[in-house]
C-alpha cells in the first residue's frame, strides 16, 4: 500500500469580496502518494493555484482539512507551520520568486538558513543541487543576472535544498519559451524517475507533460476527474 503524503478532506476555499462570495475550491477530496508525479489541469480560474497554495500552506482553507505526512496543517501555529513548510515542502513558482540581491548559491542556501543548517553543510548541499540542475557555472551570479530558464533551475534547486517530502510547482514553464520549458520539464521528470521525488504540478503546457503518474481535471473549483491516463484528462481540457 502506497503512503498518502498529502490528504485533502472536504476542502473548501471561499473568497469574500464585499457582498459577493466565490467558492474557489468546493469539497475537494484527494490523496497524493509518496513518490508520485501528480499533475493538476484545468482552465484559467478553475482553482488550480488556490489548491496548490493550500497544500503548500501558503494559505489556509475556509473549511476542511489538509494532512501533510499525517499532520493536520490547519491546526499548526505560524512558527511551526513555517518550520514544517520549510522542511517538507519545496515550492517552484511561475515567476521564479528568487531574491534578486542574492547569488544563485545564496538563494539555494536560504531555506537551509531558516532550518538552522551550518554554513558548510549549506554550501556543499547548494553546490551539489546547482550541479544537479546544470548550473555549476552560475553559482556566484546574482539571481537578477540570470536568464528565465536559469532562474527556474535555481528555484528548483532551492525547492530541493531541505530534502522535502513534496515539490509543488505552479506552472513552472509558464514564463519560459517552449525549448527552455521542455528542459525544465525534463528536470522534473528526472527528479521523479531517478530521485523518487513526489511532485505536484499545475501546468497549462499539457504537451510538455510526460511521465506523470496521475492527473486531475479541475473545473470551477471541483475535481471532475482523476485519472492515471493523462490523455483522457488532456482531452477534457481541450474539449471544454
Amino acid at each position: 500500500m502506497k503512503k498518502a503524503i498529502i490528504k485533502m478532506k472536504d476542502l473548501w476555499k471561499t473568497y469574500h469580496m464585499g457582498e459577493t462570495t466565490l467558492d474557489a475550491l468546493k469539497e475537494i477530496n484527494l490523496e497524493i502518494y509518496q513518490g508520485e508525479f501528480f499533475t493538476i489541469l484545468g482552465h484559467s480560474g478553475s482553482g488550480k493555484s488556490t489548491m496548490l497554495n493550500m497544500v503548500g500552506s501558503l494559505d489556509l482553507p475556509t473549511k476542511g482539512k489538509i494532512f501533510l505526512d499525517g499532520i493536520d496543517i490547519s491546526t499548526l501555529h505560524e512558527s511551526d507551520l513555517a518550520q514544517l513548510r520549510g522542511k517538507k515542502i519545496g515550492l517552484v513558482f511561475q515567476s521564479f520568486n528568487l531574491i534578486p540581491s542574492l547569488t544563485a548559491l545564496e538563494n539555494v542556501s536560504l531555506p537551509m538558513i531558516f532550518q538552522g543548517q551550518d554554513k558548510n553543510t549549506r554550501d556543499s548541499k547548494s553546490k551539489e543541487l546547482l550541479s544537479l540542475v546544470g548550473l555549476s557555472s552560475r553559482m556566484t551570479h546574482k539571481a537578477s543576472q540570470l536568464s528565465g530558464g536559469e532562474k527556474q533551475r535555481v528555484a528548483i534547486a532551492r525547492a530541493l535544498s531541505n530534502n522535502p517530502e513534496v515539490i509543488l510547482a505552479d506552472e513552472p514553464t509558464g514564463n519560459l519559451d517552449s525549448k527552455t520549458g521542455a528542459e525544465i520539464m525534463n528536470i522534473f521528470e528526472d527528479l521523479h524517475k531517478n530521485h523518487n521525488r513526489t511532485i505536484i504540478m499545475v501546468t497549462h503546457d499539457i504537451g510538455l507533460v510526460k511521465g506523470s503518474d496521475r492527473s486531475c481535471y479541475l473545473s470551477d473549483g471541483k475535481i471532475i476527474k482523476v485519472s492515471k491516463n493523462i490523455k483522457e484528462i488532456k482531452e477534457m481540457v481541450i474539449k471544454k
Binding site: 513555517a82 518550520q83 522542511k87 520568486n97 536560504l110 531558516f114 532550518q115 532551492r158 531541505n162
Partner: peptide
C-alpha cells in the same frame, strides 16, 4: 513572502 514560503518564521 518568498522568505515565508521557503520556511522563514515571522520572527526570523
Amino acid at each position: 513572502g518568498i522568505m515565508k514560503a521557503i520556511g522563514a518564521k515571522n520572527k526570523d
